[in-house]
Amino acid sequence: MSVQQINAYVTAMFEIAVANDALATVEDEMFRLARAYETNEALRGSLGDTSLPIERRQKIVEQLLGGKAHNVTVQLASMLVGTGHISLLPQVADALVKRASSEKQLEVAEVRTAVALSDAQKTRLIDALAKATGKRVNLKVVVDPSVIGGVVATVGDEVIDDSVRTRLDQVKARL
């Protein structure tokens, strides 16, 4: 799959989300769905199983997101399954988030933590990252147990790593 094709999906999704006045919601939900797709092997296997009829796989998406996500998000994810390009979901979602952030002149800040952040923590983190990088950020939180503790924040090319995993890796290297 070429970058042009990914961009075509992103453009289509962006326009549809804007047209439905749901860009912020859709890009956030697509981002979270992409992370779930990346980390959940069973979900990846089910949605990518070509032996299952497309309708069945689209039904899985609808059952997974139905009632929890915006209708546009469900339809866009279902479209990727229908075209047989669900494996592109992580790249498409990341590009969509980047496009949406760019539209709002924000920099995507991907933050990985071992536990979920509270809304207050998210707000303080957005302020702290903006202060540290000098950019307004679009915060995307990924709950990643491999972090163990602490936070890994990636803003553009800059990585701020204060995770327990990294400290343990340093201890391991020293051992």
Partner: peptide
């Protein structure tokens, strides 16, 4: 370390990170 990282400690680590990053510049 995993055993020692209860929820309170996790929150302290996150808050500590936010404070440190916010104070960085």
């Amino acid at each position: 370390v995993r055993a020692a990282l209860d929820d309170r400690t996790q929150q302290e680590l996150i808050d500590g990170f936010i404070a440190k990053v916010g104070a960085a510049r």
